[in-house]
């Protein structure tokens, strides 16, 4: 059972306080998008063996969504950050690269 740190309220708590929301940084494709774009938005997920960016909600806590970079193999947590961004913060990306030199990047 994971230990998560919510960047919105500063609480570090066990997974039972949180709800997972799947892959982060998806780009929404609405009306006017091609079938391929819509499919990518709705159904295509990276499901990596390694560095993964995912959405979590502090459901039993402050109620806020946040994002987390985690390794799906080792369960190492590289960091959590606010959901109001389209890509992981540069310093987090640098930290991941330092921990995982083979990581292909965001």
């Amino acid at each position: 059972m994971l230990l998560l740190s919510c960047p919105c309220c500063g609480v570090t708590a066990e997974e039972t306080e949180f709800a997972n929301g799947g892959e982060a940084h998806l780009k929404r494709f609405g009306p006017g998008s091609t079938d391929a774009e819509y499919e990518a938005y709705m159904f295509a997920r990276k499901n990596p063996r390694g560095v993964h960016f995912e959405r979590w909600r502090h459901a039993y806590g402050c109620g806020k969504w946040f994002l987390m970079a985690r390794d799906t193999m080792t369960l190492e947590v590289y960091g959590t950050y606010k959901a109001q961004t389209t890509e992981p913060p540069a310093e987090l990306q640098a930290h991941i690269k330092a921990r995982r030199p083979e990581w292909e990047g965001f």
Partner: peptide
């Protein structure tokens, strides 16, 4: 409620 918060916090912030 969670659905609304999701869109407000993560898409149309």
């Amino acid at each position: 409620h969670a659905w609304m918060e999701d869109w407000l916090q993560c898409e149309w912030w």
